[in-house]
Design a protein around this nucleic acid. Structure first.
Lengths: 131, 131
DNA sequence: CCTTGACCTTCCAGTAACTGGAAGCGCTAT
DNA sequence: ATAGCGCTTCCAGTTACTGGAAGGTCAAGG
């Protein structure tokens, strides 16, 4: 199967698939013409990675997940450990963004947003402490 | 004022301050020895940028905010427009992360996390559609 | 047989915003 | 004088791609 076909079926851009080969996530065969020749096995791995990426796992985590994926006998605890770490990271980021959103919303609400120069947003930015 | 001093007062690493000069956010004077010589004016700009960055504004937005900051007569509407766009972006990201967190949490909860290979997390990843 | 156009190849560069490190000065104190 | 810290510049690496150029391949139509 050619790369365009795989791209369509996996939902990943061809460029990205070539990149994934570069960094060793997949190792498709090559035809006599030099074209990559993907087995359905490769297609599944790529779709797997695509899904993991869409869940926010890093490439390195995807690499680990792939190796666990290919090990039919690995313990589910190994997989869960990765997911848990990732979840914790997401929740930290979430809390951070929530605080940010609240701060910004407050500033925006308090700003008249008219032709006058008075602006609580600017005041807040300018008020940054310079010990 | 030397860069180390400015770094301490502004809370920004010296490396970052040099980078900010590189990209034209500040233009400190130079002493005869080649050392950067920051005025309190530069220090305030850097602290301003540091605060804006910590609120998640991009460097380009910081550049715009700085120019508005230096224009005592700009309309508060201009500032608010930037903040509003940024807030919208944050809220989109927030919604995305919330969905992600829910999905992952569900998967993690359903995974036994023991020595057995059965794993709903893996099942979900592997189940990615390959049209 | 030739051409056209879609598809494939590699390689180089750029993105955002720094960060680390090397090599080499300047400054201050002992 | 020398030790040691602070300053300088420059180069490279980070993350995960993405865009584009230059050129080879393949199938279809004339």
């Amino acid at each position: 199967m050619n790369i365009g076909n795989v791209a369509e079926r996996s939902g990943l851009p061809a460029k990205t698939i070539r990149y994934y080969e570069d960094i060793g996530l997949v190792r498709p065969a090559r035809g006599t013409n030099g074209y990559r020749d993907f087995a359905s096995y490769d297609l599944h791995k790529l779709a797997f990675v695509g899904r993991a990426r869409s869940l926010g796992f890093s490439i390195e985590e995807c690499r680990t997940l792939l190796s666990l994926y290919e090990d039919r006998d690995r313990a589910s605890a190994d997989v869960r450990a990765i997911a848990e770490r990732h979840l914790a990271r997401i929740d930290r980021k979430l809390a951070e963004l929530q605080a940010l959103s609240a701060t910004l919303r407050d500033l925006v609400v308090r700003c008249h947003g008219d032709e006058r120069p008075e602006c609580p947003i600017m005041d807040d930015l300018a008020q940054a402490g310079t010990k």
